[in-house]
Nucleic acid binder design. Structure first.
Lengths: 153, 153
DNA sequence: TATTGTTATACTCTATAACTATA
DNA sequence: TATAGTTATAGAGTATAACAATA
């Protein structure tokens, strides 16, 4: 025995029954793998998400982007700066509202997003390789239901 | 319309198909609710987890605790300090290895843990209220499978 | 040589208050 | 008054390198 306690007595068994603990452990695994998958494209999880929404809705404002991604407005500034600095999006003044920005992807942004999406799909298949498609659908449904419970407290 | 883009065109629909994105959104909801549930007990998620493992295996070292919780050793110091400072655990020198600490709960630590566990169970039921017990079991199984995929890259 | 725990450090993520310029 | 975006700030979470004491 290496310590004062037998190895078999040290475990997180009593935590495993909690959804939050199991999800944190699973998400940490996903985060580590996804971060590696996105790095070659110069993206982080949050910049990938932002670029994806911008490309799907060119012209949207930062406030709407923050709302869709559930990010606080002050935290979005540096994220948009990063995408703009990398030449993946442009920030134009919104027509009709001089307070707001209109965000849009550049050609390079669209190309980077397409390549990154392919990498993320591969990552997703890798991480869910142990699941049947029924299990995958059940997981997606359960996650959406949990998120919805948080939105209406 | 409030901007240059119709509201219906702005969504994270194309991200919803990714497990990582759905899990991050769900986990954020869980984290916010769990943090509120633990606050009255003077605990955070990570201190709750650490206290739980310590109470289940009194006498274990910090290195083993870090291993079980998948926390880097340097980050565990302040966590153990916090529990010790709150009078929930004690740090004694391990018998037989003068490098290591032997961590053990105090009576107050055991009482706090029991109350916190009740609060966490209530939180868990609240967040998974939209799921059947079969869906809950499927979720737990899927999360464990994903975590296992990350451990062996 | 290897391990336990610590120090130092850094980067990311999240959150809030207060400010400006517009509306 | 309210909204878009910014600045400043702070607390968590995560990660690595290097060190002293001990094995």
């Amino acid at each position: 025995m290496t310590g004062a306690v037998a190895d078999t007595r040290v475990s997180d068994r009593s935590l495993r029954g909690f959804t939050g603990y199991a999800m944190k452990r699973a998400f940490n695994a996903i985060r580590a793998d996804l971060t590696r998958a996105l790095a070659p494209h110069g993206l982080r999880m949050v910049t990938f998400s932002a670029l994806s929404v911008i490309a799907d809705a060119p012209g949207l404002s930062q406030a709407r982007l923050a709302g869709v991604l559930a990010i606080e407005r002050p935290n979005l500034g540096p994220i948009v700066d990063e995408l703009e600095g990398a030449g993946l999006i442009v920030r134009r003044r919104a027509a009709g509202d001089r307070r707001a920005w209109a965000l849009a992807p550049t050609d390079r942004g669209r190309e980077t997003l397409a390549a990154a999406r392919t990498a993320v799909r591969a990552h997703d298949r890798r991480m869910t390789a142990g699941l049947t498609s029924a299990q995958r659908a059940a997981l997606t449904g359960a996650l959406a239901a949990i998120e919805a419970r948080g939105e209406t407290p």
